[in-house]
Design a binder for these strands. Structure first.
Lengths: 203, 203
DNA sequence: CCATCCTGTGAATCATGGTTCACTTCTTCA
DNA sequence: TGAAGAAGTGAACCATGATTCACAGGATGG
């Protein structure tokens, strides 16, 4: 036995993997998935295409992982603001909506890529997971609202999904036109969200 | 000069074209765009692939046309109900929402294909047109509502887009699971829509 | 009836872009 | 130092599915 992986080589390996994943994310953030071929990623990471395949079993796996990570970051932000307690359900949803919008508008190309750009099936399934993630955050807030008597009972799953869809669709236009300075847009969507949630009529 | 197109041959040509377009629509309605290769369409129309290309310059053109026609049908239905006058803006929107949902749920595969299934760019641009179409119908109703004093002034474009997105997202789940008997779902979405539109507070 | 033009045919072709793999380079340790 | 395993390379390869095109089969009208 004349070779064994050591800490240094292990670190180097992980670093290379990270560099590739980072390059892939950069590529998507800059030019969307349309621009993100394996060759382009490899070039950006300063490695050969074959090297990409030393670290990821396929392009689909690479981008699924990249999407998942970026998605998790977004989700964490929204989770943070929707779960802050000591506030009502509508307020929490509104805060989530606002965070969602601001994040998307801050990085329009990546925002568009995550929300709407055509992607291959493996990535699409990550996108569905992301949407479910957002939806579940809203569901949690809504159900708390129903529990506490703040909101009228309703189908939280559907309402939460509708909110997620509303934000996506309302943002796609501006995002694809790179109109990212829209304070008014955010306000409109927050308002929309607050309206959509029926306050309990205390008879 | 020994040949000139006559009425009969012209009719035959149009018929063939229609048969191909019909086959393409059937294929999409039954198996979605994923199943709709040129070969599959040709088989279904009982012609050779080459014949498809006699009538359509490319697959993209064929499916763009097929999508456009199906989209127009849907749009006409929603237009009909949202433009019926003698009713308030919220009522008109609610009627549009209901029609939209029922139509989609009645043909879930086609509904899904029109709303969410991945398609090539030419078809995607028809889908954007369809979405804009729905949005504009809602915009019209909303602006009438503002004019008449029924609704608080607001950014109708954004609100209407949000409504369209809300419906799409809320329906995608059920549609892809073929859960089409959902009276409750329609009711929830109509309610959601009505809530979202702010009634004018007459001080 | 035949010259001409059109429609139908489907196997061959092509374009795209992901994936492989024989080879080189580097690292480890006896 | 050299044997052995791992990582890096990139041109060749391959899969998919749209598109073409040379040829066959029908109309049309002089």
């Amino acid at each position: 036995m004349a070779y064994r992986a050591t800490e240094k080589t292990e670190a180097r390996k992980i670093a290379a993997r990270e560099r590739i994943a980072g390059a892939a994310l950069d590529q998507v953030s800059e030019g969307g998935y349309a621009s993100a071929g394996v060759q382009a990623v490899a070039d950006r990471a300063d490695v050969a295409v074959g090297t990409v395949y030393r670290h990821f079993p396929s392009k689909a796996d690479l981008f699924a992982e990249v999407f998942r990570r970026a998605a998790q970051r977004e989700l964490d932000v929204v989770k943070e603001v929707t779960e802050a307690d000591g506030r009502g359900a509508r307020e929490r949803c509104a805060a989530g909506v606002e965070a969602f919008c601001r994040r998307a508008l801050a990085g329009p190309v990546l925002g568009y890529a995550q929300i709407a750009e055509p992607v291959d099936p493996a990535v699409e399934s990550e996108r569905l997971r992301l949407r479910r993630g957002y939806r579940d955050l809203f569901v949690a807030a809504l159900e708390d609202g129903v529990q506490s008597g703040e909101l009228e009972p309703h189908d939280s799953q559907t309402v939460a999904a509708a909110l997620v869809g509303a934000l996506g669709e309302a943002l796609v236009g501006p995002l694809s036109r790179r109109e990212c300075q829209s304070e008014a847009l955010v306000a409109t969507l927050v308002q929309f969200c607050e309206n959509a949630l029926t306050k309990r009529v205390t008879a």
